[in-house]
Design a protein around this nucleic acid. Structure first.
Lengths: 191, 191
DNA sequence: CGTCTATTTGAATGTACTCAAAAGCGGTGG
DNA sequence: CCACCGCTTTTGAGTACATTCAAATAGACG
């Protein structure tokens, strides 16, 4: 279990005393998620705060017709989860699975409050993390409401250039909110 | 300037010593925003964390065709702002104005970091606040991507029953992502 | 009362979807 | 190493949900 990426990410916002770091590492769990395996299924309670160290995961909802809608992709260095399920301890409305063989580290929800008590700096860390996520979500809502499909695609390419060439087109279509057929036509129609 | 609603809201998550509360109140600014007046215009840097004490505000983006898209409504007891502009101190992509004569309290962005230093409990308060907002935004993205217009409207009615009968239909249409004409037809077409 | 904005209604249009089928691509096993 | 299988991508025809534009009606406010 290699927590170096996670510690580096934390170190960008707060500094931990050696014993604090040790305690943090002691409550960390490791999990391997092979391609197509689930980390969480819709209806389950979320496992906790999950950080991706390798591979790539996605969270998505399933609509009344059985179609999937991707809410987030999580390459290494990103956190993923159904935040509503996490904070209210209610069944998840999202499923999370792996698009490639992946590895994650997570903090069980049961340990999170204790972590905040012991090491208040984590309040700050997760505040910053959550504010960044909120800004991204807000931006996404603006895009979905304000931009036509073609520009939502362009924006996705701009924001996540490294994801574009490692994701199946079908997944990108689902993220920007169009059918795979429509995205294909869009990309193959000049002008 | 009546901060009782704000203090009550804070008290639900953290407790403050009398001198902490006094310090907090001392950095609070009051502003009246009359109907149709702006709190923030697109392109400006956000004023800071803003809490509504009376009236109702909305944040919205304007697309290439000049159409408005409502991101959030803020009745009394709610916070509002362009979080991206706030945390990165960059120009706002949202405009915020008042739908009714309103009053807000805000903390200037310049004082926020100092507030976190002096009273670390505010790290916790804003962490919780932001997590709740993130959960709501995530839910909204799921709805926009997964539900047809009719059900997005039904969900809005379910989530914000008190807003439905105090908002012009046009504003609700903008929030759920349809034109006012279409919402009108939707509501006047029996099943 | 007059003005301004919101809502309704209608007709024409367009963006994106559904369904179907063919073609491409990658992985796996014989 | 090639053949086959499953999944993704492409392409096409028909359709639907939602938009645009226009005009009439209704409400709210000074």
């Amino acid at each position: 279990m290699d927590a170096s990426l996670l510690l580096k990410s934390i170190g960008r916002h707060i500094s931990l005393a050696p014993e604090e770091e040790a305690h943090f590492l002691s409550i960390l769990h490791y999990k391997s998620v092979k391609k197509k395996q689930f980390l969480t299924r819709e209806g389950e309670i979320t496992r906790g705060h999950t950080f991706v160290t390798s591979g790539i995961l996605r969270s998505y909802s399933i609509d009344a017709n059985g179609y999937e809608h991707v809410i987030q992709f999580a390459p290494p260095g990103w956190w993923i989860g159904d935040i509503g399920s996490m904070i209210h301890q209610r069944p998840s409305i999202l499923s999370i699975d792996a698009l490639e063989d992946s590895e994650v580290l997570y903090i069980a929800e049961a340990n999170v409050d204790d972590l905040y008590e012991r090491i208040p700096a984590f309040e700050r860390f997760f505040r910053i993390l959550t504010q960044n996520a909120l800004a991204a979500h807000q931006q996404r809502i603006v895009s979905i409401l304000s931009l036509p499909a073609k520009e939502r695609y362009a924006e996705f390419c701009r924001l996540y250039p490294s994801l574009i060439d490692c994701l199946p087109q079908k997944q990108v279509a689902s993220y920007i909110g169009v059918t795979p057929e429509f995205l294909s036509k869009m990309l193959n129609t000049r002008a």
